[in-house]
Simulated scan of single mutants.
Amino acid sequence: MPEVIFNGPEGRIEGRYQPGKEPNAPVAIILHPHPQFGGTMNNQIVYNLFYMFVQRGFAVLRFNSRGVGRSQGLFDHGVGELSDAAAALDWLQALNRESRGCWIAGFSFGAWIGMQLLMRRPEVEGFISVSPPENLYDFSFLAPCPSSGLIIHGDKDRVAPPEAVQKLVDKLKLQKGITIEQQIVEGANHFYEDKIDELIEACGEYLDRRRADIAAGGGR
């Protein structure tokens, strides 16, 4: 898993990149939680999501947004972090020009950034949003949400409470042409203490199912 450095809007961005198994392997980008609360690309959930995609042959990138680790710049309340994510996806796609398929996964603050990135990138075929904090950030930009995806959260989450996540899911489920799947990890708090394996298993099962559906012509 090579360490990589690439250029972002504010200078150097530090990441970890695993090439795909095939030249046309799908790509995935993983987005970390809030940097001012200790969120980095080495967060356990981000790390495990990264390897979940690697095990399925994807070319995968996780990275530190501006001001985190060795990435240059300063925290920018989501605006700059979205630009960093777009630059990271550009870098990943430039390395994988023959890629078939693009996915975005994010945890907490990273789920918010990831869903904003979705709006800019029509080529994204699916997303995984882990504990999107609808109560803390404005998700009204999802009008409409351009691709199907999984929203997964814990029923004991106090940071992104179940009722707030439900509000987001209910709004997205009204949209036509996409399918939003919701899964709840019982007993899980925001950090999935003692529940990470269960979380990753559910995400992997969803990804396998969606990829098979897309391969069979099921579309988005």
Rank of each mutant, 00 (worst) to 15 (best):
G110Q: 05
N96M: 03
S147P: 05
I196G: 10
A164W: 01
I184G: 09
I184Y: 08
P161W: 06
V130Q: 03
G177E: 04
G204M: 09
I178R: 09
A105K: 06
D157Y: 09
P122G: 08
E98V: 08
P146G: 07
I184D: 05
R209I: 03
A202I: 15
G110H: 05
P122Q: 10
E123V: 10
G149D: 06
E193A: 14
I151M: 06
P132C: 13
F107K: 00
L118N: 02
E201A: 13
L150N: 01
V124L: 11
E198H: 14
Q166M: 09
D197V: 15
S131T: 04
G187T: 00
V159K: 09
P161Y: 07
V185A: 05
L117T: 05
E125C: 02
F109N: 02
P144T: 08
R209C: 10
C145F: 07
I180P: 00
N96L: 02
A105C: 10
Y137N: 04
P122C: 03
G126P: 01
R100T: 12
E98P: 04
Y206C: 06
K176R: 13
A111H: 02
L142R: 06
W103L: 14
I196L: 14
F191K: 03
I180R: 00
M115A: 05
E98Y: 11
P133I: 09
A105L: 05
C102A: 14
E205T: 15
D170M: 12
H190G: 00
V169P: 00
I152P: 00
N189A: 02
L117S: 07
E201G: 14
E181H: 13
P146N: 07
P132S: 13
K195E: 10
N135T: 09
D213W: 12
L142G: 06
Y137Q: 05
G177C: 08
E163T: 13
S108L: 07
D155I: 15
V185S: 03
I178P: 04
I151S: 04
N96I: 01
I104D: 00
S140Y: 10
I151P: 01
C102T: 15
Q175V: 05
F107L: 04
E123A: 11
A143N: 15
D170P: 02
L142H: 07
M115G: 04
P161R: 08
E198F: 12
R211D: 03
M119A: 09
L199K: 01
L172Q: 04
N189L: 02
F107G: 00
A202S: 12
E98K: 15
M115H: 07
I113Q: 09
E193I: 15
